[in-house]
Computed example of a mutant assay.
Amino acid sequence: MNRHFLYIFFCVNIVIFVGFETVIALNHEMVKSTSESSEDSALLGFKKAVIQELQEMKGEMLLLKMENEEKDSKIKNLEQKVANLEKGQRHSVIRGRRGMFQNIAFTAYLDHSEHNLTQDQPIIYNKVLLNDGGGYNTNTGMFTAPVAGVYLFSYSVGAKVIPDVHLSQYDVFTRLIVDGVHQLSAVAESTSTWDDEQGSTTAIVYVPDGATVWTKHEFKGGNNLYSAEFERITSFAGTLLYEKEPVDNSGIIG
């Protein structure tokens, strides 16, 4: 009987032990599965959070891009307005200057003869008929441009052979000088006694603001210039045609 009891007790213990091990194994598998499921759930949640954050960043970037484009558009509009204002101001200044200087014109003449002229000596037209704008100077014989623009200039010189007078050399050669550069020339030659001769030329040229325009004697032949109060055949005149911005005068031949 005791042996039978021990056998039964032994078998029960084995069953209990095996069952306990099985329960432990099952519990371990359940814990492992739960852990893996938790890890997958956490990873999935992290991915979702990252995706949501990226989407939010993308939205913010799009918003910033739109704001930048709007600011760029406003900046371009402001730049255009500034350019228009500057252009308008320049035009206003030009119109104002034109209002101040549009009446620029002069005419002067020489009321006597000049003898023994030297090389490059300025011809001074000492009598003034008109000097609007005050550009012509009777002391120097030079016209100073009050404003840059295109001007018309015309001048004439006289030659006359008069017996027993200094005008024994009967020809004269002169040049028109604009801003230090020779533009045109005028020549007069009297070939007989009491023969009145007049040489003249006309030029339409650009003159910078503040530049001088004048005529001078060129020592090529005669050195006497004829004129008189009652004849006034030696004269100098000019007028502003229109204002103009500075130009390149490098092509002018000196």
Rank of each mutant, 00 (worst) to 15 (best):
A145Q: 07
R95H: 09
R97F: 09
L130Q: 14
Y136H: 09
T118V: 11
H112L: 04
L117P: 05
Y155P: 04
I104C: 15
P146T: 12
V128F: 12
T140A: 01
G135F: 12
T138G: 00
G149A: 05
D164W: 12
A108M: 08
I94S: 04
D111C: 02
G158V: 06
S92K: 08
G88Y: 02
V157C: 06
Q89D: 03
L78N: 05
D111G: 00
I104N: 08
Y151P: 07
G141N: 10
F101I: 07
D111W: 00
V150S: 05
Q121I: 12
N116C: 05
A148D: 01
K127Y: 08
L117S: 08
N77E: 14
A145P: 06
Y125N: 07
H166I: 03
N77V: 01
D164K: 12
R97S: 05
P146I: 09
A105P: 03
P122W: 13
G99K: 15
Y136M: 03
V147H: 05
K127P: 01
S154C: 08
G149H: 07
V82F: 03
F153Y: 09
F101Y: 15
Y151S: 02
R90T: 04
R95G: 02
F143I: 08
F106C: 01
K127L: 02
I123L: 15
V147Y: 00
A108L: 08
S154K: 11
A148I: 03
F143C: 07
A159C: 03
F143E: 11
N116M: 11
L130S: 14
N103I: 06
N77W: 01
V161C: 04
A159R: 01
Y109P: 01
L110P: 00
V161Q: 09
G141F: 12
V161W: 09
D132G: 01
Q89N: 09
T107W: 05
K127V: 13
N84V: 01
V157F: 02
V147C: 01
N126E: 12
V128H: 07
N137C: 13
Y155Q: 07
G149T: 06
S113L: 04
D120M: 14
V128E: 14
A145D: 07
P163F: 14
G149I: 02
D120S: 15
F106N: 00
A159S: 03
F101G: 02
D111A: 07
I123W: 06
G141H: 12
S154Y: 10
P146N: 11
E114C: 06
L85D: 03
N84F: 06
V93T: 11
D120V: 10
L110G: 04
K81Q: 12
L152N: 02
V150L: 06
F153P: 00
H115T: 06
E114M: 10
F101L: 05
I104V: 15
Y125D: 07
F143M: 06
N116Q: 14
Q121E: 09
I123T: 04
N84I: 03
N131Q: 10
S156K: 12
Y151N: 06
N116T: 10
E114V: 08
N77M: 06
N84A: 11
P122T: 15
R97W: 10
A108G: 02
T118G: 14
Q80L: 05
H166S: 14
L78V: 04
V165L: 13
R98I: 04
T144D: 05
V157D: 04
T107R: 09
L129Q: 10
N137R: 09
S92V: 05
F143N: 04
Q89A: 10
V82I: 13
M100Y: 12
